[in-house]
Design a protein around this nucleic acid. Sequence first.
DNA 1: TTTTCATTTTAGTTTAATCTAAAGTTATAG
DNA 2: CTATAACTTTAGATTAAACTAAAATGAAAA
Lengths: 115, 115
Amino acid sequence: MDAAALAAVASPRRREILRLVWDRECAAGEIHQAMPDVSFGAVSLQLRALSGAGLVTCRREHRHRFYRANRAALGPVASALEKMWDDALWRLKLQAELEQSRRGPRPRRRRRKAS
Amino acid sequence: MDAAALAAVASPRRREILRLVWDRECAAGEIHQAMPDVSFGAVSLQLRALSGAGLVTCRREHRHRFYRANRAALGPVASALEKMWDDALWRLKLQAELEQSRRGPRPRRRRRKAS
DNA sequence: TTTTCATTTTAGTTTAATCTAAAGTTATAG
DNA sequence: CTATAACTTTAGATTAAACTAAAATGAAAA
């Protein structure tokens, strides 16, 4: 866990990538498909940044390059990231439930007593 | 340890500040004096960033504002930072020793045997 | 109240990060 | 060999971060 790793993990985009390759390796193309709002080139650059910081490893096979997170290099930040992701999921779920309940009959507001 | 904290701690300047207020509180002015290459305003802005991310607390007394690191907010990254700083010190020391030994008589290179 | 000190805030500039589009690699298929 | 697929790299534009200088704030001293 060095300064370069800290800088690398500070970017939301790079964390997004890191999450994709957290527990299975992905080809660069797959990663790009998972983030349609950004060009392939941009993904490649971020992969290079992650790689330079030692946060992902790369394996070449045929025409593909498979990336995978190097959790060890993140040290204590690895679990912090996992927790962040879990929390985000939890919040999403909670929000979905709220949206769902909003569809049902709205709880009536008690009429103010006429004074 | 949330995304904001990660972003905050990614900046070398902010880590420098964080280190100053790591185990004693410092007034903003003291912090600025410790980093003469930057303006007071810049320090204040970084303090605000750190404060916004919850990484420092602020206590007002008289005309001063005393800042102090909030280690708890950094979670497991706190010890990672400490280790980074220790390592940096260690490297400095090592380098100083090398510089010192360089002053002594240089070890002679063995002459190549004439073939 | 006016002044001063310690600090913050703002406006504008400089510097760095990130993105896109296009050209360049490299390995495989035809 | 040429063509194509899967990436990377480059050049240039856009966006965000960091810094400076100066004005503003707020609390205490005169």
